[in-house]
């Protein structure tokens, strides 16, 4: 009588000796939330396959086995296999862009977005909020570094006054180093005078 544990050890040893190892893997491609489907490459020592059609999947038995030719498993099957993981998928973080008339004064349109930001924070129960300050390229590096940092702080304080927890807000600033609209130096560009708020 050979015990199951001996068989398991034997199988492991064989797989180690032949250099192939690993557990059976199923890889499937699903559409993005926006409906588009990207592409993936699945590969190992034995070869690789491309998947670029929705709900197509390949299986790989171990590192020494070629991934199978992709087949359409269908949305229903994948929804069933991945039901648990899909049921706990968090909402995508939401990004807001707030623009400044000048210095640290918001445009009136951006001012009106503050309640939406607070609503999004509440909806996600978020305690992980990033506030990132930016400037356009008018002025020196030092000036803009300070200005972008002040912009981020002003928004943090405004959100805290409107009901967000200040401890949940992390501020960073990028000065004129991270332009939304690419311009040369010393260019007045309203779309670069901004603070980005990310709510996770």
């Amino acid at each position: 009588m050979v015990s199951p544990s001996r068989i398991a050890v034997l199988i492991l040893l064989i797989s180690l000796v032949c250099g192939c190892s690993g557990r059976k893997t199923l890889v499937a491609l699903a559409p993005d939330p926006d409906g588009k489907t990207g592409s993936i490459v699945i590969g190992n020592d034995a070869g690789l396959v491309n998947i670029n059609a929705p709900y197509h999947a390949t299986t790989v038995a171990h590192t020494g086995a070629q991934p199978t030719t992709p087949e359409n498993l269908g949305k229903q099957n994948l929804d069933r296999i991945f039901a648990e993981a899909l049921s706990i998928q968090p909402k995508r973080p939401i990004h807001f862009l707030l623009y400044f008339k000048k210095d640290t004064i918001l445009t009136s349109d951006s001012e009106k977005l503050l309640p939406d930001i607070i609503a999004a924070i509440r909806e996600r129960n978020s305690i992980d909020i990033s506030v990132i300050g930016h400037t356009d390229t008018v002025g020196s590096m030092e000036y803009n570094t300070e200005l972008s940092s002040n912009r981020a702080l002003v928004i943090k304080n405004a959100l805290a006054r409107a009901g967000a927890e200040a401890e949940s807000i992390r501020t960073t600033s990028h000065g004129k180093e991270n332009l939304l609209i690419q311009t040369g130096d010393n260019v007045n560009e309203p779309r670069n005078r901004r603070v980005e708020v990310v709510i996770r």
């Binding site: 557990r23 893997t25 890889v27 499937a28 590969g43 171990h62 590192t63």
Partner: peptide
């Protein structure tokens, strides 16, 4: 990475199941 293969992505939604044994 999975024990049997490596997946390279280009902006997309991937579902992966790896057996325990």
């Amino acid at each position: 990475e999975t024990p049997a293969a490596t997946i390279g992505l280009r902006g997309t939604h991937v579902l992966v199941q790896v057996d325990r044994e």
